[in-house]
Design a binder for these strands. Structure first.
Lengths: 336, 336
DNA sequence: TTGAAAGCGCTAACAA
DNA sequence: TTGTTAGCGCTTTCAA
């Protein structure tokens, strides 16, 4: 009991493979009678075309790739869940599947990209979490492979991307804290190889500078809740602890809040805390943050990628969205 | 500037495609000198094998499929994010990729399955969110295709699955509420075509029966926050409103909490609320719930699937996990 | 140790 | 309207 192929149907009907192929493809250079016979036979035997063979023939896969960065556990990060969701839902109407690849333990990231691109497994790629000098983008431009990016880089290349204005957002947030009366404002930065880390940190610095303030301390965290907690312990242990701490993402801000509460600080009045992302939990924790519509960005990215793969011209090749400042109870005036 | 194939290398070195193939595959029936020449040429030209061609030849894809149910927006559901994360991370060490397919707008679900299975796009499949008479499982058993399932069904078939004991968990939860003194306990059920909906509802009913209590009202919700809110409005509008409401999942419980708060009820003392899943937000909302380790289940499922695809015998083909009762502030004794 | 030939399942150019 | 031939890129007998 082997698989049903065109050959099976050809043998069954006594016609050639070519004719069977054309009949099923709906070409009209096949006589109606033959067409019907073939169609009936195909239905009866339950024929379904082998997509791998088609891919090989057409060198098109109708599949889009997404490779997750080798963080741990990268996949469980709410950020990726949302972007994945947006891309998946955005692709569905176009009939594209999404091939997701998580990097194995000791595997080099570039191997994943080669597998997808040079191995011909996908027609296009979505790149997320850009680095300042992102080797993946240099590589893809070099190979002329269709891709879109979530995030900017410092590379001098022309490519399609969406990014949020992390600098301006963070600037507005810190300015708001200054306006509330804070003078010692600390920052928990993301790893600086990431482009967004640099941009957000710049926004923080610009706001302080403009107000003529010194930094209230800058730590670096690994974007996890535990990383935020760790950085918070350092910052709160200082001789003159800050009255406000801004974290580069919500997850770290949440870790920070827990540490502050354990230290007996009242969030909002005793210590102001803010994050970046507006993940679902932030709403319930009343965390002031900057909202970037990650899910919608994912959707828009997939639409743009489809255009790129089809060779269409895009009206906007570089989209920069303004994050929305979500003021909640975790920030307030410093204690008098 | 076309792609580098075995043919390119063969032409370049003056050898045959066969020899090139075997040299690169590491066979030792190629002379050392030839081998080295081929290897060097391949490196120099940047050869990478065409995976589609290999797939066609070997009829193996090293890819696992996951098809999302046609809920809306299915992808954004925290439940799927976690299971997806677990599967993706679990598969990575084995070198399998994950092909995710979201159903298109008007597409029938079975078409997705045919594409993956009969189209030969994947070597195995993960089925989530089982229905009582799940046609997908009947189909897969029929085609002898490797798969594993998250959730039971009412089908009399032998297949590999993991499920949580939703009946017993819900029973324990409702029993706890009864012990606290509640007498009017309502339930917001999930759509009953889902197997887990039936099981959890049974647990609720069993606990009431055992205590000789009437139901405090049963509504059906669509598993979303808004669905929970809607059901809550009905339940709270009753002549004798319940003192406790249990929802079939956390998302609905969260919607329910919001409605209750708007109605001026104090969660925990005025109205006890409980859910099922323990999604990240539940912790912050202090929602009493039943925790099922969805991420870990996803990981274990992928390990089991790899075994099934390899034809290995599994020690445990049917795993049923006990959910953990997470008692938080959203439940308490009813007001005297 | 190497190469010719066949085949995985499909599509497409070209003849008949 | 149909069939023959070739080819997508690879692996695998089987001969040389």
């Amino acid at each position: 009991m082997s698989r049903i192929t065109l050959k099976t149907i050809a043998r069954e009907t006594g016609l050639s493979i070519t004719t069977v192929s054309r009949a099923l493809a709906g070409y009209n250079d096949v006589s109606p009678g033959t067409k019907q016979l073939i169609q009936e036979t195909a239905d009866r035997l339950g024929y379904y075309p082998n997509l791998t063979a088609r891919q090989l023939q057409s060198s098109s896969t109708r599949t889009v790739g997404l490779i997750l960065p080798p963080a741990d556990p990268s996949f469980a990060d709410p950020y990726f869940n949302l972007i994945l969701s947006g891309i998946g839902d955005g692709l569905a109407p176009f009939g594209y599947d999404l091939l997701v690849s998580a990097p194995g333990p000791m595997e080099q990231e570039i191997e994943n990209y080669r597998r997808m691109v040079e191995g011909g497994r996908v027609d296009g790629l979505v790149i997320v979490r850009t680095q300042q000098q992102d080797p993946r983008i240099a590589y893809l431009i070099n190979t002329h492979f269709p891709f879109v990016v979530f995030g900017r880089t410092n590379l001098e290349c022309d490519y399609v991307f969406i990014d949020e204005n992390g600098e301006e957002g963070t600037y507005q947030l810190v300015k708001h804290l200054i306006d509330l009366g804070h003078r010692r404002i600390a920052y928990i930065a993301a790893p600086l190889e990431f482009m967004f880390a640099e941009l957000r940190l710049t926004g923080y610095r610009r706001a302080l500078e403009e107000a003529g303030l010194q930094t209230g301390g800058v730590e670096q965290g690994d974007l996890t809740q535990e990383g935020g907690a760790e950085a918070a312990r350092h910052l709160l242990g200082r001789q003159e602890p800050p009255t406000a701490i801004v974290a580069a993402n919500d997850l770290m801000a949440i870790g920070l809040m827990e540490v502050a509460q354990q230290a007996g600080l009242e969030i909002g009045s005793g210590l102001s805390v803010a994050g970046f992302d507006d993940i679902p939990s932030s709403k319930f924790l009343r965390l002031t943050t900057l909202r970037q519509p990650i899910y919608e960005i994912g959707q828009q990215l997939s639409t743009m990628l489809v255009a790129v793969m089809q060779g269409d011209d895009l009206a906007e090749r570089k989209v920069i969205l303004e994050p929305e400042l979500m003021l909640r109870d975790s920030t307030g005036s410093p204690r008098a």
